[in-house]
Nucleic acid binder design. Structure first.
Lengths: 356, 356
DNA sequence: CCATAAACTTTACACGCGTCAAAATCATGA
DNA sequence: TCATGATTTTGACGCGTGTAAAGTTTATGG
């Protein structure tokens, strides 16, 4: 009717709406078609070939909703992240989608917008969609324990990036071991220059505290004094660059830390910090003797290498995390109900660049 | 069974699986419940209140798949973008999800991964899901005309960001008018310094050509010679920063364009170009007389203001685009079948910062 | 208190596909 | 050509919810 693309001469294939219709025009029974669609090899080769051929002459799309309703497995996996506008989460989603696609899963993504109410709604929606599992990068504050608990009765749940709020006992987790990653970069920084002070991230998920703790522990082990920069502003928002910029602009304005090594809790904070440094005429730089300002991050944000100076950081194994999470869910969905919660930690790797 | 969150004492509400079950324990008929869920105001206030109260004492999640199967409208909207790892698209998705949520729509997002085959599959999946409409940021090259054409028979389709390949005749489009946006920044650059040369983006969608054309047109109108930098590398990938960096690193290495005003086709290319400049000791800067290197971008990428120097650019109206696209689909889905293709252009606004 | 309309319940069918059992057909080897 | 097992067809039911029709209850107004 609405021939928006009406190109004269382009005769489109006849549209077929239901499998019953299809079975009639194609000349096989509907149950056989059903088997074919679930596994083309499940029917006789000659039949399979016949179906395949006739199918190409026809415009038929299976009904996703109905098929999922009736199968034991929906092959849907829910993904919830606090924000799309964070390249770390974006990278995670991209990798998750890819790993899922390879296993035949469809991803349903929802942003919690940094809001625990929205997060809870998203979890409920996943439940209503009968997903085979869900991957959640949780918000730390005021996470809705009951909602997660109820959901985990219905399907396996895997947390990534950060752990859920402490009220939870045990839960599946796939991510980076902050002790290892922060440890590695603290060690690097101490080895190549002054021991670092720590610039945290807003306390929005478990990583904020875990990374600071990891920093303190490593500094202690290395016999250095741990110093955390006290943010002059309340950092309650996910705008990490703004946070890093504001805090360090304030410090540098008072000529504080202008000669220090600053380890930031993540790259987005570091990007803001670098911007603040630049504004004050400072260009952090590693690899030279005699001190001077250095700034390092955590995550290996895709744009970190385009900063000036290029940001020294530790890279999380994003693909590894995505793949492990999907594998875990796939395994659980296929009846591998070990029931026991699993925690998978992947190593982060140093990315020494210019800034430290 | 798998009491991952088993907190002793936390008695969970009784789980109810079907609406029939619910109707029995709640004391109203199933059809009434059905009406209630579609619109709580559609039943008598006393009944509505009763249902609402009993509902809170029980753990019931409606079956998303089944409800969508039977409603005339699924209230699903498909979204397809070339990549999640591009903050412009990420911003778009975030705004789309928000606008959609307000209208009760659920978003199904898929990345085409810059691959037209994957894009076509995504469109087919949207068809199989019986979405009420789809929003797609298309890939320009070798777009699968037939797939889009078939889809647009089933539901309204809105293209955003860039137009589909030219093989298409007319299609719904919501986005920025490149003539206006590029025109604005060319005018600004000419007014505040040397007329710009143009650094394009890889030819991956219609914007590549459109923006260059817009640049040439505006330069012609202003009586200046249009000059496009010829990339020494083949830019076939979506890694725009790498493209901008490589091309300009090459130029600056030969001491070319080191004193020019460079307008980049988008901010990601500009970020790469700035990095190349910095590497060569160049810090583009506007607002000073007597020439010197200047670099400008297009889109107002969220990190543009954190570059050194902060990137001068034109901001697309991301929220406006998202909202207009959703509104258009909602209107069409509600029977407003004007059938005619609509094109909505939103103005971009100058963001003068430091780099030009 | 009754007439009337609105709201509700009951009953039934529909949606498109998964799945099962029984009957019919096919392919293969002797 | 026939026996045999594998595959397909036929027919039927189920999934959880939307929805329509007909009958019953409830609220409203006089």
């Amino acid at each position: 009717m609405c021939a928006m693309y009406g190109v004269p001469g382009t005769m489109s294939k006849p549209k077929i709406n239901t499998m019953k219709e299809l079975s009639e025009t194609i000349g096989v029974s509907r149950p056989t078609l059903s088997k074919y669609f679930q596994d083309p090899a499940a029917v006789r080769p000659s039949t399979s070939k016949k179906i395949q051929e006739r199918l190409s002459e026809v415009d038929y799309v299976y009904n996703f909703l109905t098929t999922r309703q009736n199968r034991k497995s929906t092959e849907l996996i829910g993904v919830i992240v606090p924000s799309y506008k964070d390249l770390f989460f974006a990278s995670l989603i991209e990798s998750i989608e890819q790993s899922a696609r390879e296993l035949g899963y469809t991803i349903i993504t929802q942003s919690s917008n940094g809001d625990s109410g929205v997060e809870a709604n998203a979890v409920r929606k996943m439940r209503s969609m009968s997903v085979d599992g869900a991957i959640v990068a949780p918000i730390g504050v005021a996470a809705d324990h009951d909602t997660f608990a109820a959901a985990s009765e219905d399907f396996p749940l895997v947390f990534i990036d950060s752990r859920p709020a402490k009220s939870m006992t045990v839960a599946n987790f796939v991510g980076t071991d902050n002790t290892q990653s922060i440890g590695a970069i603290v060690e690097y920084l101490c080895r190549t220059g002054d021991p670092p002070v720590f610039l945290g991230m807003p306390d929005l998920n478990a990583n904020a505290q875990e990374r600071e703790d990891a920093y303190r522990a490593k500094m202690l082990a290395l016999n250095h004094e741990a110093i955390a920069i006290e943010p002059a502003v309340a950092g309650g928002s996910w705008e990490f660059e703004a946070f890093g910029y504001t805090v360090m602009d304030d410090c540098f304005g008072r000529r504080e830390f202008t000669n220090s090594t600053i380890l930031c809790a993540n790259d987005r904070v570091a990007i803001g910090a670098i911007r603040a440094a630049n504004k004050h005429g400072l260009f952090p730089r590693g690899g030279i003797a005699g001190g001077g300002l250095r700034i390092a991050g955590h995550d290996d944000h895709p744009l970190s290498q385009y900063m000036t100076p290029a940001l020294t950081t530790v890279a999380q194994d994003v693909e590894g995390i995505a793949d492990a999470a999907i594998q875990l869910l796939a395994q659980r969905a296929r009846g591998g109900r070990s029931a026991e919660a699993v925690e998978v930690f992947l190593d982060a790797t140093m990315k020494p660049r210019e800034s430290a």
